[in-house]
Design a protein around this nucleic acid. Structure first.
Length: 371
DNA sequence: AATCCTTTCAACCGCTCGACT
DNA sequence: AAGTCGAGCGGTTGAAAGGAT
């Protein structure tokens, strides 16, 4: 008998969130910032447990969430990171700041597992040493000692650092070395382009990007909320009966944003990137105070830790991010390993394709800052 | 048109971890 | 040192949507 679920307390509501609840939550977080989730239900009057509020915020309402189809590049990054980190979705999501761990996890389970399985069965019909699942995320069952794993990790970190260092060397513009001799080398090299996540994302900006796949159909979460509110406003004109005065104000602001954002959506989507700073950024271009008010959240520490810290102005990874990339402690990759052979090639092809371009877009000064 | 099957994804559950006392 | 509590993570579930028959 474990602890009873927190949602069992006090007849908490479960199931899908309503637009009204979303608005209340967004309003509250706008006012107080994300964090201290325990106090959220009491302070907002939401009949939701703190956990549910946090989840709703982090997985759906939080600014900077990209929804919709994953790009080819994202897909490959997930595959690669999954191979490196295992099913550590939060860690993987930290390299794809616009995606939530839940999204990535879902995408892995619904799309990528199948895709890889297909690929794998196509590759080797005879090597079934792993398990019935081919190389599903849960397939790695060969034992590995902690010591072994730690040594491997150390080597990985060292090699990755070295690789990144080389990649950023102005004298070596070609960051994918042709001297990779081991699967290990290939693996790390293929990771290199993902180091440029921030850069990559920024380069989705139509102004600077030349990538073919950036015609984004993604809606930022502001779009989500806007759409949601649009419907809600149509269906439910009685905002004030559900909310406090403050909430009413915020609802008005949201509505105001919604209307104004119709003109601004193109711009935002054009950027194809909605970071947590999107609000502030967009507010600068949108005169309406409502938008500014609602979406320029004050980043709480938890926000900062969860959201990307890409500097949109210089479009570069910060040193912290890079060190984070390598400091991220990894647990033994006992599960979710994918045999890396032709799959690697597949991934590396893409990596090589984008690597040079990414590097070119990264200023050397900032690259130097990484170390 | 009706039914069944599959896919998707938001949300929940249970567990672990770290901070605090 | 031990206990408590909140936050976060990964696995799983189930409703809804879409597709096949």
């Amino acid at each position: 008998m474990g602890r009873p679920p927190c949602c069992d307390k006090l007849g908490m509501k479960k199931g899908p969130w309503t637009p009204e609840e979303d608005i209340i939550l967004v309003s509250y977080i706008q006012e107080r910032g994300a964090g201290n989730w325990r106090s959220v239900p009491t302070n907002t009057g939401l009949l939701r447990c703190s956990k549910s509020c946090r989840l709703r915020w982090t997985n759906y309402l939080r600014p900077g969430i990209k929804r919709g189809n994953f790009t080819d590049h994202e897909e490959k990054m997930i595959i690669h990171l999954q191979a490196l980190l295992g099913n550590r979705w939060a860690a993987i999501a930290s390299y794809l700041p616009q995606r939530t761990d839940n999204d990535i996890k879902n995408y892995w389970n619904t799309h990528l597992k199948k895709k890889l399985k297909k690929l794998q069965t196509g590759l080797d019909g005879h090597d079934h040493h792993n398990d019935q699942d081919g190389f599903s995320g849960d397939s790695l069952d060969q034992p590995i000692s902690k010591g072994q794993w730690e040594r491997r990790l150390q080597t990985d970190i060292h090699m990755a650092k070295q690789a990144l260092s080389e990649a950023l060397s102005i004298n070596k513009p070609s960051i994918i070395s042709t001297s990779a001799t081991t699967s290990h080398d290939l693996h790390l090299q293929a990771l290199k382009p993902s180091i440029n996540i921030g850069n990559y994302n920024i380069n989705d900006n139509p102004i600077t990007s030349t990538r073919p796949h950036q015609a984004s159909t993604y809606a930022s979460n502001t779009d989500n909320i806007a759409k949601l509110l649009e419907n809600w406003m149509k269906n439910s004109p009685k905002v004030s009966t559900h909310q406090t005065n403050a909430d009413q104000t915020n609802a008005d602001q949201i509505n105001s944003f919604n209307n104004n954002n119709k003109g601004g959506t193109t711009t935002n989507r054009g950027c194809s990137m909605s970071t947590s700073s999107e609000g502030a950024h967009s507010a600068a271009t949108m005169p309406d105070q409502a938008f500014d008010s609602l979406f320029s959240f004050n980043s709480s520490p938890s926000d900062v830790s969860q959201s990307m810290s890409v500097d949109e102005n210089n479009a570069n990874f910060t040193a912290d991010q890079t060190s984070c990339l390598f400091q991220d402690e990894s647990k033994p990759n006992l599960e979710g390993q994918v045999p890396l052979t032709l799959l690697e090639k597949w991934l590396c092809d893409d990596a090589a394709l984008h690597a040079h371009e990414d590097l070119m877009n990264m200023s050397f000064e900032n690259g130097a800052d990484l170390f």
